[in-house]
Amino acid sequence: MNARSTGAVLTAGVAVVLSATAVAPAFAQPQAAEEQATVSVLHAVPGLTVDVYAGDKELLPDFAPGTLTEPLKLDAGSYDIKVFKDGEGPKGTPAIEKTVEVPAGANATLVAHLTADGKPALDAFVNDTSKVPAGKARLTVRHVAAAPAVDVRAGGTAVFQGLENPEEAKGEVAAGTVSADVVLAGTDTVAIGPAKLDLAEGSNTIVYAWGSAADKNLALKTQTITGMHTAPHAVPAGETGLAVAAAHNQGITLGALSAGALLALGASGYLLRVRRRTDAS
Score class of each variant (00 low, 15 high):
residue 2 N to Q: 15
residue 3 A to F: 00
residue 4 R to A: 09
residue 13 G to N: 11
residue 15 A to H: 14
residue 19 S to K: 04
residue 23 V to E: 02
residue 25 P to I: 03
residue 25 P to F: 02
residue 25 P to S: 02
residue 30 P to E: 13
residue 30 P to K: 12
residue 32 A to W: 12
residue 33 A to G: 10
residue 37 A to E: 13
residue 38 T to V: 14
residue 44 A to D: 15
residue 44 A to V: 13
residue 49 T to G: 10
residue 50 V to I: 14
residue 59 L to P: 06
residue 63 F to Y: 13
residue 64 A to F: 09
residue 67 T to G: 09
residue 70 E to Q: 15
residue 72 L to S: 08
residue 74 L to N: 14
residue 75 D to K: 09
residue 75 D to R: 13
residue 82 K to A: 05
residue 83 V to K: 04
residue 83 V to H: 06
residue 84 F to K: 00
residue 92 G to D: 07
residue 93 T to F: 08
residue 101 E to R: 12
residue 101 E to N: 13
residue 110 L to Q: 01
residue 115 T to I: 02
residue 115 T to P: 00
residue 117 D to R: 08
residue 121 A to L: 11
residue 125 F to D: 03
residue 125 F to S: 01
residue 126 V to C: 01
residue 128 D to E: 01
residue 130 S to C: 05
residue 137 A to L: 03
residue 157 T to V: 14
residue 157 T to E: 15
residue 178 V to D: 00
residue 179 S to E: 04
residue 180 A to C: 13
residue 192 I to G: 00
residue 195 A to W: 13
residue 200 A to S: 12
residue 203 S to I: 05
residue 208 Y to I: 09
residue 209 A to G: 12
residue 215 D to R: 10
residue 226 T to S: 03
residue 229 H to R: 00
residue 232 P to D: 03
residue 239 E to V: 11
residue 242 L to I: 04
residue 244 V to L: 09
residue 247 A to I: 06
residue 248 H to I: 13
residue 260 G to L: 02
residue 275 R to L: 15
residue 278 T to C: 13
